[in-house]
Write a protein that binds this DNA or RNA. Structure first.
Ligand SMILES: [Mn+2]
Ligand SMILES: [Mn+2]
Ligand SMILES: [Mn+2]
Ligand SMILES: [Mn+2]
Lengths: 230, 230
DNA sequence: ATAAGTTATTAGGGTATCCTAATAATAAAA
DNA sequence: TTTTATTATTAGGATACCCTAATAACTTAT
């Protein structure tokens, strides 16, 4: 058993598939992501193929089968529900929840997850704005997109980050940007694509192009012209 | 690294030490407890000796060192705090919490345990009446003892069970006995040592000698003569 | 005290995970 | 199109955990 490792492999295959939609999920790719070496990963991939949890070939890379997807999405679901529980019920900060959820996601009790999910009011998004798959494995859609794709004048709300990396989350705290903040795009500086914003307290914030690519927002005005460009 | 197995060995050595105070904690003993075979356990015991977590010799059996005790008691602490949290905050039943706590006890986050412990109001006993060690590893004392050691007329309160075995807990539910119930010992039937009780609703309950040995209670009357006999 | 029954240890394997070094297969550059 | 760099795969090991079978060491009951 010790399905804990296997769960992490399947989750990683799912995650890399979502991030690198065009690229194949190769053993090397996975090895970097999981801090392992390619032969180690390849060995495991072969075993996952044998168990019918993935398909694998050099050209297409690793792809989850229906069975593999169900396991992976369930772990993602548990992870995001725990993150939300830690954030909302236990007062952990935005940047602390991921590490603990990495462990809690492997606790195998549907009743426990159902309970905390219902206490939270069946939320659709976690504290980083990531969608929480429902019990059927269906991932809620949202129109969040990187702040970097905004046009001048756009009024938007902070919904999350591309990767819940602690360093970046703390960097945002330093910039005084938090989840659900309303931001107005005042100016896009063409020299380096950095963005000048105002927040709801009318404070100015300057955010780098790199950070703007990682920060996910949604337009608040239904008629916002940003939407056309995406 | 996978310290999860190691934690379970150390916890088992602690638990067997508490249960069988006179007997040594032998590899065979542990093997039965952990559903493993003696050579498997012996191998692990040797590795624990090498790591300085236990002392081991044939005559004395396995004994935790200070370092080993600290790990073991911390797992016990986490287990009992989680059981209490599941019972009190998440409305799980008496008999459901153990299985889930077996998993949650290995989640390594002091901040998480501190948080739920404080939400619970720093309780001293878990839902089975087992003492919750404090952060320093000190186990609260209580005067709970098996119901079987009661004398006629004793008024006592149900504080727990010797082993949080699901079958026994469900059996108690069937007998209509729950945690914190007040019981009066009406008669001890000498033929088979079974005990006739009344509960707070004045209902009669007949409990077998075997069950009475597993059910832990404490006298409510400070002057109760039971105390002398223990 | 000796035979029989128990317990403790050794020997020898098996699987799951991981690794380094070497080789084969591709892709990129010159 | 060679040469060079990158990837993918194989080969060969190491460690953690588990097991069965065999042996050694102890107990217990004649
Ligand atoms: Mn996360
Ligand atoms: Mn998240
Ligand atoms: Mn328990
Ligand atoms: Mn308990």
């Amino acid at each position: 058993m010790n399905s804990f490792k296997e769960e992490n492999y399947l989750k990683a295959i799912y995650q890399l598939g979502v991030i690198d939609k065009e690229n194949v999920v190769s053993a090397t790719h996975l090895a970097n992501w999981l801090f392992l070496k390619p032969p180690t990963v390849l060995e495991k991939l072969n075993s996952l193929v044998n168990k019918g949890l993935i398909k694998y070939d050099k050209t297409g890379g690793a792809k989850l089968t229906k069975k593999g997807y169900e396991i992976a999405i369930n772990i993602v679901r548990r992870h995001r529900i725990w993150e939300t529980y830690l954030y909302k019920q236990l007062n952990f900060s935005w940047s602390e929840v991921h590490e603990i959820a990495e462990q809690l996601e492997h606790v195998n009790s549907d009743k426990l997850i159902d309970k905390i999910y219902s206490i939270l009011g069946n939320p659709e998004f976690d504290p980083h704005g990531d969608p929480i798959p429902n019990k059927q494995g269906i991932v809620p859609k949202s129109d969040r997109r990187p702040l970097s794709k905004s046009i001048k004048g756009c009024v938007c709300v902070v919904l999350g980050v591309s990767h819940d990396n602690e360093v970046f989350l703390n960097y945002l705290s330093d910039l005084n940007i938090a989840l659900n903040d309303k931001l107005i795009v005042e100016q896009i500086i063409s020299y380096d694509e950095s963005i000048r914003l105002t927040n709801q307290k009318n404070e100015f914030i300057l955010i780098s192009a790199k950070a703007a690519e990682q920060l996910l927002v949604a337009c608040l005005k239904p008629s916002c012209k940003c939407k056309i460009e995406i």
